[in-house]
């Protein structure tokens, strides 16, 4: 059974801010279908009472004093920006 349809691939591509040709949609739907099919072996395991691991050590809320320290200048921060104007990054219009 086909688990991943072409319309799903297009939907997920939109979420991921990618766009594909028809050929790519076909290729990725086939490959993702195989990979998800393979991943379904995890369903063999009963994990009802297992706590999920997001991080191997139980580290949380690492805090430090909120002190002002030197940081990048505006000029430096813009060094790698592909488009800029008046000391700011320039982007296409968001609102019509």
């Amino acid at each position: 059974m086909e688990r991943i349809t072409k319309s799903q691939i297009k939907h997920v591509a939109h979420l991921a801010r990618l766009e594909f040709s028809d050929h790519e949609v076909e290729m990725f739907s086939e490959q993702l279908d195989q990979i998800i099919n393979f991943a379904e072996q995890l369903n063999e395991l009963d994990t009802d009472n297992v706590v999920p691991t997001s991080h191997v050590f139980d580290v949380r809320n690492v805090l430090r004093e909120d002190e002002v320290k030197p940081s990048l200048s505006q000029e430096e921060a813009l060094e790698n920006a592909p488009a800029q104007k008046d000391g700011q990054m320039k982007i296409p219009t968001v609102f019509e």
Binding site: I4, Q8, I9, V12, A13, L15, A16, L18, F28, Q31, L32, I35, I36, A39, L42, N43, L45, T47, V50, V51, P52, T53, S54
Partner: peptide
Amino acid sequence: VKRRIMLGTFALSSGYYDALYKKAQKVRTL
């Protein structure tokens, strides 16, 4: 890179998060 972004976005997307991402986190514990 596109393939992995697609797989990851799919695994985190609404309706698949528990069955894929969270399931994998639990197996990681095992």
